[in-house]
Design a protein around this nucleic acid. Structure first.
Lengths: 221, 221
DNA sequence: CGGCGGTTTTGATTTATATCAAGGCTTTCC
DNA sequence: GGAAAGCCTTGATATAAATCAAAACCGCCG
């Protein structure tokens, strides 16, 4: 988060933060609880989700080092968050956050940019959930992985094959894509049959033709 | 948008804006176009949507008087927007917007709050799209209407029946809820059979028991 | 008033995905 | 190294929603 600030500023900011370690599996933000804190992740992956009373759940996203949590502006948390492994983060109380904003306007600007970006990601995901088929969803996920990992400038996809490590379980992927575990698995199988991917093992996939995969993901053919 | 500003400031701001009128049906923001402007709606309803090349589409939201459009921070519009009726709005170029931010930090704060709120709404909608049944989706929509219109403080639902005007067509509702027109219609029919709603005509519905409807919408029973 | 275009409802059928149920792989840990 | 526990895949069946099709309703304009 600290990219927006000078080193001096960073020092001041650090004093306002509480460093914390969260153990794997721990739900450290609970939907509906009073939203008293704001978090910045230093290390480790976090699952952000919402659930219905009967247990159905949706993972709205995964967050890692450098990312923020807790932008919620109403008094209550709009989602839950769970550590997927050991997580190190900084916690700011809402009061000190306001103080920090006053001292570093640049931070507020940056948060606005981040929020705007998250909003476009959310809209894209809504289109996926509302209108894409299972195979399209899975393809879209793979493509998003490529974009993130390769930091492909401006959506330029590699034209040759590339190996991808799947960082999450089938269960998490299902909850993220609005599918079941079985449907995710069958969608992978179909992509394999169609010569678009190959597995070395369940968590290492080779995209044989990223560009063709993109056509599938976005219904361009 | 101007709640955050003093009257004096408002005057200055007004000079930076271009007033425009959009005719019904006009798509005045096109997904993928360079994002040069920022809009504030004065009057009339707008449909915000994303589409796939083959025509499937998802309406991410409806915006009316007082609301903002164009928070997109990347260089390109993340969605399209279409006037549902005659729309009056103010348009700011991105350059002047930055100027305005510099002059009125309060505005930036307010936009951050708005973005955070939109983000929680988006997350709620993702849960709906990913995990709710058709009847649950339609019920959720009705409930959201009540909340907005009645301005029910903190989710307090009326305990007695109330009449609601449905402001959009079945087609729009389907595209908003990730369903088809027919399924929306059948879901209404089912709610009617279950004694939860009643229609005077296709666009005027009576919620016979809002609290029970809420149980259906959120799978609490 | 009566026909016409568009919207909504209702019905029959199909289909994609969920659910139920095994079976196969990995990893772990004794 | 082998058993146990989790994942993941595959198969059979069920089901919710989509699709296809037609009828009912509604507002509009002649």
């Amino acid at each position: 988060m600290c990219d927006a600030l000078s080193d001096d500023d960073l020092g001041v900011l650090a004093k306002a933060a509480q460093r914390m370690t969260i153990s794997p599996g721990k739900v450290f933000i609970e939907e509906g609880d009073p939203a008293n804190y704001f978090y910045n992740i230093n290390e480790g992956m976090v699952r952000v989700f919402k659930a219905l009373p009967d247990g159905r759940r949706h993972i709205t996203g995964f967050m890692g080092a450098g990312q923020f949590l807790g932008l919620a502006i109403s008094g209550h948390c709009a989602f839950s968050a769970e550590a997927m492994e050991e997580v190190h983060l900084c916690r700011f109380s809402r009061a000190t956050l306001n103080q920090v904003f006053a001292d570093f306007p640049a931070l507020e600007r940056r948060l606005l940019n981040i929020a705007a970006h998250e909003l476009t990601v959310a809209h894209e995901q809504m289109l996926l959930l509302a209108r894409k088929s299972a195979v399209e969803r899975v393809s879209s996920y793979l493509l998003n992985l490529v974009m993130q990992l390769d930091a492909c400038a401006e959506g330029k996809l590699p034209s040759s094959k590339l190996i991808l490590k799947l960082p999450i379980s089938r269960a998490d992927l299902a909850d993220y894509l609005g599918l079941t575990i079985e449907t995710v698995s069958r969608s992978f199988a179909q992509l394999k049959r169609n010569g678009l991917i190959e597995f070395s093992n369940a968590h290492a996939v080779t995209l044989l033709n990223p560009q063709r995969l993109e056509l599938v993901a976005n219904a361009k053919s």
